[in-house]
Design a protein around this nucleic acid. Structure first.
Lengths: 240, 240
DNA sequence: CTATTCGATTTTGTATACAATGAATGTCCA
DNA sequence: TGGACATTCATTGTATACAAAATCGAATAG
């Protein structure tokens, strides 16, 4: 499972790409984003150092930054792990993202020029196509591209940076709490509708559209209490 | 100027307090918050290491975290400095804080119990008293205590953490852009009014109150373009 | 007098060694 | 059998050494 990721990194090293802590941060963020590093994954410093071909110093710096962004969780004298937010935190993350992404798209309404709208449109198109092809990995990648594009072009860069972090956290909790039977978290038309509202300079419409979209996304998750712990008891319980 | 800060740290070391990176982060955050470390201040690693009695490793970790929170600015191979946001960034910080602190107090309306309200009331009282005493340092400390208390008690902890960072950034830009003649950024009654609205469970009233408060605070700053650079030209200009 | 280049110093970047802590496993005794 | 304890291994915490880069100043050429 994590072999793919490992191999890609090795390819970089062989290609003589200069690896610094920023690179490592980006790589791990990307892997978490694409759900190739599931929540709870152990991230020992020496292992990462060997994979990226650097010493622990660089890895540690990268891990510190990732911890600040809540991508990983560090406790003293314990290995870093990909964050696994609780159900309550998950709801809070969605609420925060509704507030901030809503504001960002409201600020963005009418501010994208023709070329930028076409770029977003191409992402939406690609997402739809990937969905038709049943290529979930591709679909997630294109979906994230849309939201990251909005974050990166936020007129308010402070809010844009916050949104980037929240997109990452959202991706983590989706990987954690996605309903078992659900193949994909695809919501048809939402993105296209948002783009139309942005082009029409309808700030409040765009805000509402995004907030509805995120609420629908949250509703696709299984956020009922007691989940993981009960599994073991149910499978190996005393009745067996 | 920074001797005060230096001495305090030494006192800690002598008292045998265990210094780790978190301690250093808190100390520097506090110093920035209290405007004892003005924007642009150099923060060399070895100097900090000697002051806190630790090696560069620990200092570097602390600096990395501070950079993630935008408290300091790091560029490769250059000494870290206390952040000095541009005028545009300053406006964005205030806009972001209006959005987020507004939401936090709206969520908080009616949620504080009697004791918590009394705690906030005591901070407000202390701020007012410090203002009457012309003790600006104390006034800032109590004012920050109010806002940090709200951030720490936010029902949505994600938004609360974001607000904490924004309070810090706000403190930095106030130190940077405070109008020359202005002794203090004290806005009478705003905090008391906010508390009354929170007790009355008036969420939208509280949101509006905070947003107005922050807009008034921003208006006290001198955010006209061309400031620092023109000074030099005016003073040492070719006409001299 | 100004601009530029060179060198010395300061400061950060990285690797590594060693200490300290934690987790896991195995052992002993009741 | 079952639990307390000790040992071992894995992993992080910290300090330090050395390399690389930037900054500052002085000397020099125009």
């Amino acid at each position: 499972m994590s072999n793919n990721w490992h191999d890609e990194v090795l390819a970089d090293v062989e290609a003589g790409v200069r690896i610094n802590d920023r690179h490592i941060v980006d790589r791990i963020r990307q892997a978490v984003l694409m759900q190739r590093l599931p929540p709870g994954t152990r991230l020992p410093e020496v292992a990462l150092g060997e994979i990226f071909g650097v010493s622990r110093s660089v890895v540690r710096k990268a891990l510190t930054r990732l911890a600040s962004d809540h991508v990983i969780t560090q406790q003293p004298n314990q290995v870093a792990r990909v964050s696994a937010p609780s159900i309550e935190e998950t709801r809070e993350i969605f609420a925060a993202r509704r507030l901030i992404e809503g504001e960002v798209v409201a600020l963005l309404a009418g501010k994208l020029d023709h070329d930028q709208c076409r770029t977003v449109a191409s992402y939406i198109e690609a997402e739809c196509q990937a969905h038709l092809d049943d290529d979930e990995a591709q679909r997630i990648e294109h979906s994230l591209a849309i939201h990251h594009y909005l974050a990166d072009h936020s007129p308010n860069r402070t809010l844009g940076a916050m949104l980037s972090d929240l997109i990452l956290c959202t991706s983590i909790v989706i990987a954690l709490y996605k309903r078992a039977g659900l193949a994909s978290c695809y919501l048809e038309n939402d993105h296209a509708e948002l783009l139309a509202l942005l082009e029409r300079s309808d700030a409040e419409g765009a805000r509402h559209c995004v907030q509805t979209h995120l609420t629908a996304l949250e509703a696709l998750l299984d956020l009922r209490p007691q989940d993981k712990s009960i599994d073991l008891a149910a499978i190996f319980g005393k009745t067996g």
